[in-house]
């Protein structure tokens, strides 16, 4: 299984990848993207099985990336990992087709709760 991790912070990408491993998802291929535009391009090029994306990013936000992907016909499973977890943002995320929104800071348990049904 291939997981695309999109965040403009390299440090946060490392933390997300480490937390995936701590949650037991340690045998998957990881692809990194540094903003929403990069994530959009890499979904097309790499065909990941899941996208874990930050929301607030330069060039293209995570939400804009998800909307662009759905407009282009991609149904790739998509979840947000973001520092903002307000009810309004969760609603926006769900309306755009996101499976879940994990608020930062997160733990390995948080990842397990949201990903167990998504990652085989």
């Amino acid at each position: 299984m291939k997981i695309l991790v999109a965040d403009d912070s390299r440090v946060m990408r490392q933390i997300v990848i480490r937390t995936l491993r701590q949650a037991g998802y340690d045998d998957h291929d990881i692809v990194e993207a540094e903003d929403g535009r990069d994530a959009y391009d890499k979904v097309q090029a790499e065909s990941p099985d899941l996208v874990l994306s930050d929301w607030n990013m330069p060039n293209m936000t995570g939400l804009e990336c998800l909307q662009a992907l759905r407009s282009a016909g991609s149904g790739v499973p998509f979840g947000f990992v973001t520092s903002e977890g307000s009810p309004e943002m969760r609603e926006k995320a769900a309306d755009a087709g996101a499976l879940f929104l994990i608020a930062k800071p997160f733990t390995a348990d948080t990842f397990s709760e949201h990903l167990d049904g998504v990652i085989a």
Binding site: S9, T82, S83, A103, K104
Partner: peptide, 11 residues
């Protein structure tokens, strides 16, 4: 990123 996480939760 630390400021971002704290700031997002303050917001």
């Amino acid at each position: 990123e630390l400021a971002n996480v704290v700031g997002g939760n303050v917001k």
